[in-house]
Design a protein around this nucleic acid. Structure first.
Length: 262
DNA sequence: CGTGGCTCCTGGCGGC
DNA sequence: TGCCGCCAGGAGCCAC
């Protein structure tokens, strides 16, 4: 799940649940997912504090704590978040569990343990250190064109490159390229300026549409390819069987009819 | 600079 | 049924 729209949905979920609740206890079930802080230190940073604000940058969430400092959440391939009251209702792969004074819990669920929980005093320096690019929804058109114009690699790799532009992953890259009718292996600098502008517009449109629909593919518009990304999936426009290829090692679906090589 | 391969990790699925 | 390889919405590292 966790690409920009999913992470934004998590953000809004926490905004409407755990925000401003005082943290009573912190349980770390799997310390191997901690990124840059030890379990003991993390508990010190969190206990007795509140989450006062939440910022998202690309696929990262930064939960501002009442004493300053930020809890960092990165979800990897299989992350999720859940706020609940009955302890038995916690997700089966809860790696970190916050308990609040109102007796509710917030679970960081992460089946494959590819996600990370970390801490930073300063978001900007964290982003700089990681060399993460600008958030896909913040980037303006000029900067986008600047970043992409001369790129020599495939367009799908570029879209997914977090150092270039943050937030787009494998699934939404496919959607954005499908909506723009670009073959995923097209070399970026072969695209016309006009096509790049359309691509830019579609990045925003696809991501914003997904956010509005809580990143739930069941609700997606009929013209979206995401619900059809599976074996024998069909192009929603012409019912042609979608092709499945690898681009940079990642499974890629596209419509051979609407996204032609050139 | 760009790509392909490998790695981390767990679980679901299809094939034999 | 049981086992096995393959695959999965992320990303870092390394060799070429």
């Amino acid at each position: 799940m966790p690409e920009l729209p999913d992470v934004e949905t998590f953000k809004r979920y926490i905004d409407s649940t755990a925000l401003h609740k005082k943290i009573k206890t912190v349980k770390v079930n799997n310390s191997e997912i901690l990124y840059n802080i030890k379990s003991k230190k993390l508990k010190e940073k969190l206990t007795g504090k509140k989450i006062t604000d939440i910022y998202r940058h690309g696929k990262y969430l930064f939960l501002k704590l009442s004493n300053n400092g930020f809890l960092i959440l990165h979800f990897g391939m299989t992350g999720d978040i859940k706020y609940f009251k009955i302890k038995n209702h916690q997700p089966s792969h809860t790696r970190v569990l916050l308990e609040f004074e109102n007796d509710y819990y917030l679970a960081f669920d992460n089946q494959r343990k590819l996600g990370k929980v970390g801490y930073t005093d300063d978001i900007e320096s964290f982003i700089e250190e990681k060399k993460i690019g600008e958030d896909a929804l913040q980037l303006n058109e000029d900067k986008f064109l600047d970043l992409f114009y001369k790129k020599k690699g495939s367009i799908k790799s570029a879209l997914m490159n977090q150092n270039l532009i943050a937030g787009i992953g494998n699934i939404y890259a496919d959607e954005i390229l499908y909506q723009t009718q670009i073959f995923p292996k097209t070399i970026v600098n072969k695209l016309s300026k006009k096509k790049l502008k359309t691509l830019y517009k579609n990045i925003k449109e696809v991501l914003n549409t997904a956010i509005d629909l809580q990143a739930n593919p069941d609700n997606f518009p009929k013209k979206f390819i995401i619900p059809h990304r599976k074996k024998d999936g069909k192009c929603p426009l012409d019912n042609k069987i979608l092709k499945k290829i690898k681009v940079n090692g990642r499974t890629t679906y596209y419509c051979p009819n609407h996204q032609k090589h050139n």
